[in-house]
Nucleic acid binder design. Structure first.
Lengths: 244, 244
DNA sequence: TAATCCAACTTGACATGACAGGTTGGCGAA
DNA sequence: TTCGCCAACCTGTCATGTCAAGTTGGATTA
């Protein structure tokens, strides 16, 4: 009666089965799923287990349920969505695995006002900067600057120009007991600076999309700022999600 | 033992109580919540009910749970997040309640390529456009264009220049049985066109942030396109969310 | 024929009980 | 003193059963 721990969780088995039936068209959009009691019979699990699987499908936007009627397949949200919804989340992760990036500089320099403001540092103070460019086959597509308050990085491996062997987050937690808790993401359009234009190989003053993401600990203190600049006319951010 | 339907659901009572204790600092960030069994005793509900409340708190990013240890209060995500995560969702809603907006035009005109492509219409075809400007005390801040395929709006009240008395979505569903199922959102930076510059009162060619949101039905057909242009240097999109 | 009522389904909300497996702190042995 | 073991907690998962409430379609009635 208890739990077959080996081959995965029961609600996951139901979840995966239903998800793939939706994906391969066995249950086309608009169709009603088998009722909960029917699923109970088919998968030989209890109703709460079925309900858990349906809840997750609903959360993924794949189905919707109406009491008294049933659960129905929704249209296909072009995958991705959900987990990778926030571009900024990708950026914070990126600062950890900079595999395909070319490091431009790593060092302590005077931070621009925008950075000191968001990191809550005194104006004119210095901060640690790691900056790199991401490219695809057509050339540079993204200029990423990761800023850290100095007191966070002194005595850590962040200051060395070599790639990090462990993630930044784990590193900060190990050394300073600091954990990122939430992020604030700002999106704006502006003209490229001369430096940016040169690195990204766009005309000076060309419109660029600028993402500024700050990572905060549970007390609201800003621990990290990642600034991404991408050429506005050549790249766009795309995101898909279900409507309710 | 069954259900006091009148005064709200039990898991909601627990949820609200815990949420307000987190909000008012009774449970400060980092603190461990009372264990599930303690909450069962305090609220006089069953454990599944407590678990449901905790699940929702976790989903809101307010707490995090570790098996074997307990549930812990996370830092304050500056509210909003969650529901209002997608700027595009706001835009699709906006097209329904255009209270504070000034209507610039409403009519059928030849659609630009970008619009016909995304709405999957033949190049050069006409489409229905409703266009308005949103302003705040400093002047115009957003130029919004809502496009619809012609066959969707003929015979509906959408073509009249008066504000709609019922929402666009409900209207479409009532007349044509069409339901928006998911949205695709694109964010890019570009230079303002002459028209846009004039309406938004920015210099010609100034960088603008451009959101293009398409609403699709369950079959993937694009039913609606909303294009928002905002002056890049004066306004930014901001979003906050928990990190996991 | 048309309106009404009801039985059969369906989802949602809970209670109770049970076991698995991670975490922690204290106690006793080396 | 230090290491290792173990009992006490804690969350996660799952089964079984109950009741409420919305929906639907067919039988009954006016």
């Amino acid at each position: 009666m208890a739990a077959p721990r080996e081959d995965g969780l029961k609600y996951e088995r139901v979840l995966n089965a239903l998800r793939s039936r939706i994906a391969d068209g066995t249950y086309p959009p608009g169709m009603m799923l088998p009722s909960q009691s029917r699923l109970v019979a088919e998968f030989d699990v209890s109703r709460p287990t079925v309900i858990e699987a349906l809840r997750l499908l609903r959360q993924e936007g794949l189905i919707e349920s109406q009491t008294g009627r049933g659960s129905f397949v929704r249209g296909k949200v072009p995958t991705l969505s959900l987990e990778r919804a926030y571009p900024g989340q990708r950026l914070l992760d990126l600062a950890e695995s900079e595999s395909l990036a070319e490091l431009l500089q790593a060092g302590i320099i005077v931070a621009p006002t925008r950075v000191t403001t968001l990191l809550e540092l005194p104006a004119g103070s210095k901060a640690f900067l790691r900056q790199y460019v991401l490219s695809d086959e057509d050339g540079p597509v993204e200029l990423v600057s990761a800023w850290f308050p100095i007191d966070l990085v002194t005595g850590t491996k962040l200051t060395s120009p070599e790639p990090m062997d462990e993630g930044i987050r784990r590193h900060l937690y190990g050394r300073k007991r600091l954990r990122l808790d939430y992020a604030v993401e700002r999106t704006l359009a502006r003209s490229a600076t001369a430096d940016e234009a040169q690195v990204l190989k766009v005309p000076a003053g060309a419109p660029v999309l600028n993402l500024v993401v700050t990572g905060h600990d549970a007390d609201g203190r800003a621990l990290q700022l990642v600034d991404a600049v991408l050429p506005g006319d050549r790249h766009e951010l795309r995101d898909a999600y279900p409507l309710t």
